[in-house]
């Protein structure tokens, strides 16, 4: 029993780090820009296939792919911002939501055309290996993916809090006009922010692909997961997103270990509903859009 509990805790923390990675990009974009990026999970899916193709065609390890995904998806996000978001940013939330939904459907269907609806998996030499921590057994792939997710979250934190550009992005999230008056090119920095958000989605996709099978249609599941983390954590805080991811990871693994599988999602979404009713701002104590 003790070994199982320890395994569940470690598993939950590692998965939680990845879930935090899933929610991070969504949280940043929503927190600073107010754009509900429902296409977030489509980019997560693309991240999984990005690693899959690099592995299949060139034998590139997913760990390397995670690093490569950063600039590639950053560029992709920047292009999406410049070509799509700037057209809907000030047209009201409905148009923005519809545009992002359209983008999600487009990416998913392109995924079906290119990769079919069959599920794929990234199977490397360490996929099915594990090691022991005391009585607990831990999968190497989860340690690697969790570590990369932690590095991603840490890098985002450092960028947003310890660089002038990151602080300027946070300032835009708090008062866009006041930031512009200071000479800050808001569109330029929002291009960086959106690129960063999509880069987070792409890297998270690689990490998820290391652990779970993936298919174009399966991406919507991760959208719900990302929103779960964001709602739990409150909008736009890197630290709170991390905490929320860990909470979701722990609850999921505990529920998965000790109650029938069909109750796992019931428990998680009941928790979400309770938090929304009792504490609408999420786990944080302050309801506001800021990072």
């Amino acid at each position: 029993m003790g070994a199982q509990v320890l395994t569940v805790i470690i598993d939950g923390l590692l998965l939680g780090l990845i879930y935090a990675g899933i929610g991070l990009g969504l949280s940043l974009i929503l927190g600073v820009m107010g754009v509900v990026n429902v296409a977030h999970s489509a980019f997560i899916m693309l991240g999984s296939y990005f690693a899959y193709e690099l592995f299949r065609r060139a034998g590139i390890d997913p760990i390397i792919s995670a690093a490569l995904a950063l600039p590639v998806f950053f560029l992709l996000g920047s292009v999406v911002y410049r070509t799509l978001i700037t057209r809907v940013e000030f047209t009201g939330p409905t148009q923005g939501l519809i545009a992002m939904f359209g983008l999600m459907v487009l990416i998913e269907n392109l995924g079906v055309i290119v990769w079919t609806t069959d599920a794929r998996a990234l199977t490397t030499h360490y996929t099915n290996t594990s090691f022991a921590i005391g009585p607990a057994v831990v999968a190497w792939v989860k340690v690697l993916a969790g570590g990369l997710a932690l590095a991603l979250i840490g890098a985002a934190w450092v960028f947003l809090h310890y660089t002038l550009t990151g602080r300027a992005i946070r300032a835009i999230g708090q008062d866009r006009d006041a930031a512009a008056v200071l000479g800050i090119n808001v569109h330029q920095l929002l291009t960086i922010l959106f690129g960063l958000g999509i880069a987070c989605a792409g890297v998270a996709g690689v990490l998820l692909g290391m652990i779970y099978p993936f298919s174009p249609g399966g991406q919507v599941f991760w959208l719900a997961w990302a929103f779960l983390v964001v709602v739990l954590g409150g909008l736009g805080s890197v630290a709170n997103t991390l905490v929320a991811g860990l909470v979701v990871g722990i609850i999921q693994t505990f529920a998965g270990a000790f109650v029938p599988f069909e109750f796992v999602y019931l428990i998680l979404y009941t928790l979400l509903a309770v938090i929304l009713i009792v504490r609408r701002e999420g786990l944080t104590s302050v309801a506001r859009r800021s990072i």
């Binding site: 002038l164 946070r170 300032a171 008062d175 006009d177 006041a178 930031a179 200071l182 000479g183």
Partner: peptide
């Protein structure tokens, strides 16, 4: 421009606020 009402960035420190004034 000194805008009407509160325009300091509430989640940034005083120093960070002032530093952003020197963005240029």
């Amino acid at each position: 421009l000194l805008p009407q009402g509160r325009s300091a960035f509430p989640d940034l420190t005083v120093e960070e606020n002032i530093e952003l004034g020197g963005w240029s």
